[in-house]
Design a protein around this nucleic acid. Structure first.
Lengths: 370, 370
DNA sequence: GTTAGCACTCATCCCTGCGGAGTGCTAACG
DNA sequence: CGTTAGCACTCCGCAGGGATGAGTGCTAAC
């Protein structure tokens, strides 16, 4: 019923980025309870949590003084910190990592919300790109943070159809449609002038030859055939191969949809202008986002990346909760939510998980495999 | 050498939006000089301008007291306002409108900058969409504000090629390539199952029939033919017409590229969180932007829209400087810069003007007309 | 091991006073 | 009659200085 992956959490220690199993042995049951309560309180209020408040919370039957002792221990161990001597405690990144890895319990989304999301996705007649954008919007609206969706990488996608359109003597527009119904395009400069009729021939040839293969497979085939056919003078084939190698030479850029960037500004922690600027710059320069998302794409299940000053300074103070979706063999993209580290993970994790499943399911239903 | 349009400025008086010729008669030469100097000072410093500072400025040989008299008059007339009794004056929206309409003198862009922009645009092999995005980035980078580019409206574009790709029994992906090389696509649900072979026939038929026509013309033709051929049972033609009417039924959504949204945060006037949020929300919901840009699209030359509380509250405190670009007959899009009203118009106006000319020129060169 | 008590530490808020920038007004000047 | 010097006045911004209150660490008693 729930992603197995979410027991493991990406985290970064020192310079590198690694994975850690719940370090559950280190803390006593009481310390764990107090840490959990502090984090959940802090998630709601955004204010440092004091010992008094805590001692009055359901389930904690300890005096403020006892709580203070535990808190002092947790601070020593690096799970908590205090903004200043006479404020309460707030969780550190390490605290959050531990929480996510071994304290957090996630429930399924409510049936209502699940139904609602499903309807949203299927409401309009959306093409694949539209669906992905809509998924981003939904993630953003449901979480009140920012939704991110990365379109499946070009190289891993399965090819459905290609089309060459002549724009001018030497400029050809290549339109590439993947199995999942994603349309990508690119301009190619050719050395010898081509007519549209010639291009149509090439189009037909390539569609017969390559439909249903992944871009990687096509690359390999093209390379092999080009080596073989060098002697051959079938000009159609020659042209087709030349053109396709042109197209495949450079990968198409990765596409990321960012939805609800303004949501993140509602968060009190981003009242600080400098932090906000850095974040918005990150949104503007998609390359950074691609890099972040790419890392999470390698593992199955819900991933949680907690931004830290060392490893991911561009999203310091933020967390990225992601999950992969897939349409057909090998083709996977990734979607998720970027919000402040102080985030209700128990709600966001199942949301992202469900969104990924939903998108995968719709993508699989909507297009026949060839 | 310079757009004639920039002598006329869109402005809003009361509830509506209208046009005004320079209301140059109303003010004496001295008042005009002082207003101009105040606005240009304020543009640089962002601080209210006082009478002392002003009297020491080059070209103004008046004592602070005299300047104060003029300023009081200008305030009375609504061109200036003071944040509080003992601060200097800042321009009002009316002040800016008057400045833009009749005080501002714009120079051409420097040769260096022109060359630089041209190179940026032609650096990579960009398809049309890429070029438009790049134009947005350039506008944003050169102005340090936010670049906006709207893709030409679907209905006005000239059709180059259409392609139908079967995704599943009843789902067909329609890829539509315009004369200018813009690729748009859409999903169509069909009632009767179609094979890809049938779709290919339709594709060929439509490409022969409609290439080089504008979408509006195509709509008209399809309607006419559907009326005529109702009795006819040429199933190919029937199918083709049915499909194309499906496609044309709903316009494709307008596309706007927003580049450098984070730039606008650098502006001191947006330190106010509420203002910034409203602005970023506007960027998130493209519909509002489309509406704004659409208004400016109807007039030739550089347009300046000064946001006001009444008429364009979503960009209150901001100005939008735009110009149209075009690729072929009838197909026009619009691009521009959105920044604070306190903006160096003398620099931004020629920038936007040149960008629009540049994009138009490249678009015209890059694709042969059919 | 747990708790009550207490002294201590800071951040926050509010009040106050002060300096400075800039204004409006008036009266004098050319 | 336009221009200017002088002057009183306004008001923002800033720094200093309690007062408040939340929260802590420590210690001693239970």
């Amino acid at each position: 019923m729930f992603p197995q992956g979410n027991r493991q959490v990406p985290f970064s220690r020192g310079s590198g980025t690694g994975w850690v199993d719940a370090m559950s042995e280190e803390l006593s049951e009481r310390s764990r309870l107090i840490l959990k309560t502090i984090i959940e309180d802090y998630t709601v209020t955004g204010e440092p949590v004091g010992s008094r408040t805590l001692s009055r919370r359901e389930g904690i039957n300890l005096s403020p003084a006892s709580v203070r002792n535990v808190m002092a221990d947790l601070e020593e161990l690096g799970y908590l910190s205090s903004p200043h001597t006479s404020a309460g405690r707030i969780p550190t990144e390490k605290g959050y990592r531990f929480y996510v890895a071994s304290l957090l319990r996630v429930r399924q989304l409510s049936r209502d919300l699940r139904e609602h999301l499903r309807r949203e996705c299927q409401l309009r007649e959306l093409d694949t790109e539209g669906l992905l954008r809509e998924a981003g919007r939904i993630l953003s609206a449901a979480s009140n943070y920012t939704g991110l969706v990365m379109v499946p990488r070009f190289t891993t996608t399965v090819f459905r159809r290609i089309e060459f359109v002549r724009l001018s003597e030497t400029r050809v527009l290549v339109v590439f449609i993947t199995q999942a119904g994603i349309v990508q395009h690119k301009l190619v400069e050719v050395s010898e002038p081509l007519t549209q009729a010639e291009l149509d021939e090439v189009t037909n040839y390539l569609n017969q030859e390559f439909t249903g293969l992944s871009v990687q497979e096509i690359k390999r085939r093209v390379a092999r055939q080009m080596a073989q056919e060098r002697a051959l003078f079938d000009s159609l084939q020659r042209r087709a191969l030349l053109l396709s190698s042109c197209v495949l030479q450079h990968d198409l850029g990765d596409q990321v949809f960012v939805e609800g960037a303004s949501n993140i500004l509602e968060q009190p922690e981003f009242a600080d202008l400098a932090v906000m600027r850095r974040l918005l710059r990150t949104f503007d320069q998609k390359a950074l986002l691609v890099e972040l998302l790419d890392k999470a794409q390698q593992v199955e299940g819900v991933q949680i990346l907690i931004g830290s000053a060392e490893a991911h300074s561009e999203i310091e103070g933020c967390s990225l909760v992601t999950s992969c979706y897939s349409s057909d063999r090998g083709t996977t993209g990734i979607l998720g939510v970027l919000g402040p580290t102080r985030m209700p993970y128990a709600m966001v994790i199942p949301l992202v998980d469900y969104a990924a499943r939903l998108v995968s399911e719709i993508l699989k239903n909507e297009s026949d495999s060839i």
